[in-house]
């Protein structure tokens, strides 16, 4: 893409990114993922397949988990976007981030930001009521290291804390 074309065709949008309002001019063909990792300098969101198949690029748009690789940024005028950087920071981790550490829920870590954003979306949605349902509703996030068991453990732990009792009790 020629830089001049991108500037000429850029369209103004306003988004709230991790709580901060951003006024941007974006070329129509720029995905949210590329906007985040490039101009926004938020490389926590990962590019895995870039085709909506792996879930590594999962972020929250208006509280809902979405594959940022398949969202054109220009369509998001007015949206509120939360990335892994907005969920928590070193010293002030989100409960899910801490639980992933506690349960060793990763090896290489590349899918982890997407896994955690997806798990946050899962909890917002409120449709998972058993480990089986957590597994089904996390199936959009692949982990090639195969840390699935520990990922499910981490999410189960946080969901159990949220309901004020152990998750196994909550399920019974």
């Amino acid at each position: 893409m020629l830089h001049a074309d991108a500037e000429r065709m850029a369209i103004p949008i306003v988004i709230t990114l991790n709580g901060r309002q951003e006024r941007l001019n974006v070329a129509p063909w720029v995905t949210l993922l590329d906007l985040l990792r490039g101009p926004m300098e938020l490389p926590g969101t990962k590019k895995g397949c870039d085709h909506g198949q792996c879930g590594a690029c999962t972020v929250l748009i208006d509280g809902q988990r979405v594959n940022s690789c398949l969202k054109l940024a220009v369509t998001l005028d007015g949206a509120e976007i939360t990335t892994i950087e907005g969920l928590g920071q070193p010293g002030n981790l989100h409960a899910l981030q801490q639980a992933f550490v506690d349960h060793d829920a990763y090896q290489c870590g590349y899918c982890t930001p997407g896994q955690i954003c997806s798990a946050a979306g899962l909890m917002n949605e409120g449709h998972a009521h058993s480990r089986e349902e957590i597994r089904e509703l996390m199936s959009g996030n692949l982990c090639r290291c195969g840390a699935y068991t520990n990922i499910a453990d981490a999410i189960e732990q946080v969901m159990g804390q949220r309901s004020g009792k152990s998750y196994k009790e909550a399920a019974e």
Partner: peptide, 9 residues
Amino acid sequence: GASPQLRNA
């Protein structure tokens, strides 16, 4: 069909 992320979009 698909995944939760895709079904949201």
